[in-house]
């Protein structure tokens, strides 16, 4: 898979404060790339460097094979975390203005805006002022303005904040559609469930450094602990417990089930395979529940950040 954006060895200092320390990321084409990290990790600074709002002290950025240059702004759509619109300007005029700043002609902008406004069923907002709209409504306009010039690279910083669940879903679907149509998305958020749903790749920043990156599934694979969650029933649960404890490393587990089961997390040693466990359990009890424990993005996030802080 080819790379759309490559940032190499980026460092940035603000006076004494180091915002980024030798950070490199590669964003594959047509992927959704999650840029994660605790508050103040340097995500926004990195995003601003990609947008040429801030210049890096060291390092360089390559977009689609070319070093980043001022003309590239029209290939990028950016929805910042700190976002807003001119309060006393009419929705339509404002959207046209921002679209033209991104290099669209007046006619193109008008045409595409009509299309989006019809799609979101908001044509009657055209002559309203932003201050007359609710926060969620304004966010919709902001989203449209971000994607209107059909950029190759979309950067969303906390895109779902301010949306109700229905509209958040609408926006999520639009982001996926844009990816399917060929756009590449960089997505920065704290909401791990949306990372699970959307991201193909992630990079994790902590204290100005990149501490983890790669394909999300690969990362999960490398973080799995060979643990299986099982629910068992047997005529003699106590004997079963002892039998298992003699053979495997097991701890009590918590999950919902309809049976009054023995619930365990069983961690396999390197010499055992899942089949060994199944055979063993099959011989001794009835298996109601058997699933591999896959670490969530949230777990990986918390664990990695904790480890790197030590």
């Amino acid at each position: 898979m080819s790379t759309l954006l490559e940032a190499t060895n980026i460092s940035k200092n603000f006076g004494e404060f180091q915002a980024l320390n030798d950070v490199s990321i590669q964003v594959p084409k047509h992927s959704i790339f999650g840029l994660l990290g605790p508050n103040g990790a340097g995500k926004t600074t990195l995003i601003r460097i990609i947008n040429q709002i801030t210049m890096p002290d060291v390092g360089h950025v390559i977009l689609d094979g070319e070093p980043l240059k001022p003309e590239h702004v029209q290939y990028i759509g950016y929805l910042p975390e700190e976002r807003g619109l001119y309060k006393s300007m009419k929705v339509g005029e404002q959207a046209l203005y921002l679209a033209q700043l991104k290099g669209l002609s007046y006619k193109q902008a008008k045409q595409r805006l009509n299309h989006w406004f019809e799609k979101f069923e908001i044509t009657h907002w055209w002559d309203k002022k932003i201050e007359e709209l609710s926060k969620g409504m304004a966010q919709k306009i902001q989203f449209i303005v971000t994607v209107l010039h059909q950029p190759k690279l979309l950067i969303f910083d906390e895109p779902f904040s301010g949306f109700d669940p229905i509209n958040a879903n609408l926006i999520k679907d639009e982001i996926l559609k844009l990816r399917d149509k060929g756009a590449t998305v960089i997505f920065s958020t704290h909401r791990m469930e949306s990372v699970e749903e959307l991201c193909d790749h992630i990079a994790l920043l902590h204290q100005s450094k990149k501490i983890l990156d790669g394909n999300l599934l690969d990362i999960k694979r490398s973080h799995k602990t060979n643990t299986f969650q099982v629910g068992l029933s047997s005529s003699n649960l106590n004997d079963l417990k002892i039998q298992i404890a003699e053979r495997f490393d097991s701890t009590a587990a918590e999950f919902k089930s309809l049976e009054n089961d023995l619930k365990l997390n069983i961690k396999l040693s390197t010499s055992d395979t899942p089949n060994d466990l199944l055979t063993f359990l099959n011989a001794n009890a009835t298996i109601n529940h058997f699933v591999e424990v896959i670490p969530s993005a949230n777990d990986i996030f918390i664990q990695t950040v904790k480890n790197s802080s030590l």
Binding site: I53, V73, G84, Y86, K87
Partner: peptide, 17 residues
Amino acid sequence: IEEKTSRIIEVIISSVK
């Protein structure tokens, strides 16, 4: 100041210098 308080500034300077 208005552009700062309405938070539109970052949107604009991602398009223009």
